[in-house]
Amino acid sequence: MPTPAVPCPCGLPASYAECCGPFHSGARSAPTAERLMRSRFSAFAVGDTAYLLRSWHPATRPARLDLDPEQRWERLEILATERGGMFETEGSVEFRAHYREGRHTGSLHEHSSFSREAGAWVYVGPLSPVDFD
């Protein structure tokens, strides 16, 4: 886990402790689908598989999640959002997540679906085929 003062991996101008850290620890819930997407990217970046599984819709959640220790998630671009606000129950986020694996760099492009379950936003899955560059 990053130290509290480091910049948050999600790209917002705040420290990890002020931004995604409270979501990962369970102290707060993401208020919007976009914030959940950002917190999930940060969880991939810091290796928090427990949060990734906890924030995944029960109908689509895998039984387990093994992250590649060689893959480093470095930067997130939010390309578009649709619905997913504080007072909505469904939304989508289109994003590009940039990674490094050894000397290779690449990105993952996904348009994701999110819904509220028991008052909390969860990741449902991709709305279209996932594209790795």
Rank of each mutant, 00 (worst) to 15 (best):
R38V: 02
H104G: 03
R103D: 15
H104F: 13
A17V: 01
S55L: 11
L12W: 00
G26L: 02
W73I: 10
P58T: 11
R100A: 13
D66E: 15
R38K: 09
C10G: 11
S39C: 08
P69T: 06
H57K: 04
A50G: 10
R38T: 03
V122I: 08
R96L: 00
T49P: 06
C20I: 04
Q71H: 06
W73F: 09
E110W: 02
A118N: 15
D48N: 14
H57R: 05
E77K: 03
A17N: 02
Q71L: 15
S39Q: 10
V130K: 04
C8S: 02
S113V: 04
D133K: 03
L67A: 08
I78F: 01
Y51Q: 08
E110D: 12
L127M: 13
T32M: 11
A120Q: 15
G84D: 10
L12V: 10
D48A: 06
G85H: 09
L79N: 03
T81E: 06
V6L: 12
G85L: 04
Y51T: 06
S107L: 06
T49C: 07
L79P: 08
A120L: 14
H109P: 00
V124N: 04
P31A: 13
T32F: 13
P129G: 04
D133Q: 09
T32K: 07
E110R: 04
R116P: 15
S128Q: 13
A17Q: 13
R35Y: 08
A97D: 07
P126V: 12
G125K: 09
R28T: 06
H98R: 11
E18L: 09
P58C: 03
S115I: 10
A14V: 01
A45T: 13
G11D: 04
C20K: 05
V6K: 02
S128W: 00
V122Q: 14
D48P: 05
C10A: 10
T89C: 04
P69G: 04
A59R: 15
L108P: 00
A80P: 11
F87Y: 09
G26N: 09
R40Q: 09
P9W: 01
E88I: 05
S112Y: 05
S55P: 12
P9V: 07
R83P: 05
A80M: 02
P22K: 01
E34M: 08
